[in-house]
């Protein structure tokens, strides 16, 4: 009994180490990928100096941030100021625990996986609010206020947009949701749930504070928003949390709408040779497409105005998501 118990714990710890390690590496290179993509879209080369094609740039950035002086404002609420950057990273990394990366590989295969991710992503807002308030600076404070209002509004849209997926799959377990999509020939909820997918993606941009909804950190008016007073490693934690959030939102989009690690049955019938490729390859490929989408939108669209952002969330996205729930339930009930 006891050796088996210890064996399980060791396996879980190993899985956590692998997932966190791989994710942090992805975070580092997501920044490189972002700078390269945006650079090329703006007819620049992006980072080129450190290593071939600037490949070592993320490592140089990491070392620089790690050794920078940690400055805490004299008038800040020191305890809250110090805890604030840890909260979003903790919340974002915890959400990774329930994401199935390929068949059978998930740290915690819980029944309420989707709700757990929603709960964790809603906690990320605390880090921002705490940072904004404890810095004792106007810019940080305004950034914190903006962000908390934005995140609360768009969380509703994210939750409602995923209800259609829950109805179709009849489960909150992410593995079950992926398997439920195999009943279709096209193997994805993307087609019956295209409205939900649209709402989810727009809300995901707002939830992760990415352009065109990056008002909390709008640099032209708020310096850097809620983390204006942060430096060195604490600043890097906020930065990492944003990128982990992006990876998680992309993963949910892939799992709930793009069939996760599976391929459409129609495609597999046409080209059976594709079944040899391990599922993780498809999963990562789909996630990379979504991350690229984040950068593409950032390079293409100007920043939204704040009141427009709020009315978009409450008056367009939430009614759309509600209508999608009604239609999906009716179709599911009568067919």
């Amino acid at each position: 009994m006891i050796p088996e118990f210890i064996y399980t714990i060791i396996v879980i710890l190993l899985k956590i180490a692998v997932v966190v390690g791989v994710t942090m590496l992805h975070v580092a290179y997501a920044t490189y990928f972002e700078r390269k993509v945006i650079g090329h879209m703006q007819v620049r080369l992006g980072p080129m100096r450190v290593g071939p094609h600037g490949l070592l740039q993320p490592i140089a950035d990491g070392i620089k941030l790690f050794f920078k002086e940690d400055i805490i404002p004299a008038e800040a609420d020191k305890t809250v100021f110090k805890i604030a950057p840890i909260v979003p990273v903790f919340a974002a990394l915890s959400a990774l625990a329930v994401i199935p990366f390929f068949e059978g590989f998930v740290i915690a295969d819980i029944n309420i996986g989707l709700l757990f991710i929603l709960a964790m992503s809603s906690l990320g807002a605390y880090g921002i609010v705490m940072a904004g308030w404890s810095s004792n600076s106007k810019y940080s404070f305004l950034g914190g206020l903006r962000s908390s209002a934005q995140v609360i509004s768009y969380e509703v849209a994210i939750g409602l947009s995923l209800v259609g997926v829950m109805i179709l799959s009849g489960s909150l377990n992410l593995t079950e949701i992926v398997k439920a999509q195999q009943q279709f020939r096209h193997g994805m909820f993307l087609f019956p749930q295209f409205v939900a997918y649209f709402v989810f993606m727009v809300a995901a941009f707002a939830e992760t504070n990415r352009a065109p909804f990056d008002l909390p950190e709008a640099e032209s008016e708020l310096v850097a928003g809620y983390f204006a007073e942060y430096s060195g490693m604490r600043f890097a934690l906020f930065f990492a949390a944003e990128y982990i959030g992006m990876i998680i939102m992309s993963s949910i989009a892939v799992l709930c709408f793009w069939g996760g690690w599976t391929l459409p049955p129609a495609l597999l019938d046409a080209a059976p040779a594709l079944a040899v490729v391990p599922g993780i390859v498809w999963f990562l490929l789909k996630v990379y497409i979504h991350i690229f989408l984040f950068y593409w939108v950032r390079a293409s669209l100007p920043r939204y105005r704040y009141d427009r952002l709020m009315s978009l969330g409450w008056k367009v996205l939430i009614p759309l998501a509600l209508a999608n729930i009604v239609v999906t339930s009716l179709v599911k009930f009568f067919l």
């Binding site: 709700l115 929603l118 709960a119 809603s122 906690l123 308030w133 908390s148 995140v151």
Partner: peptide
Amino acid sequence: FLAAVQLILYAGAILVLFLFVIM
């Protein structure tokens, strides 16, 4: 389910609103 809803609703929404007002 209750645990998740406790976190989403109370911790994620209501308490943030509290914080919002108190700030």
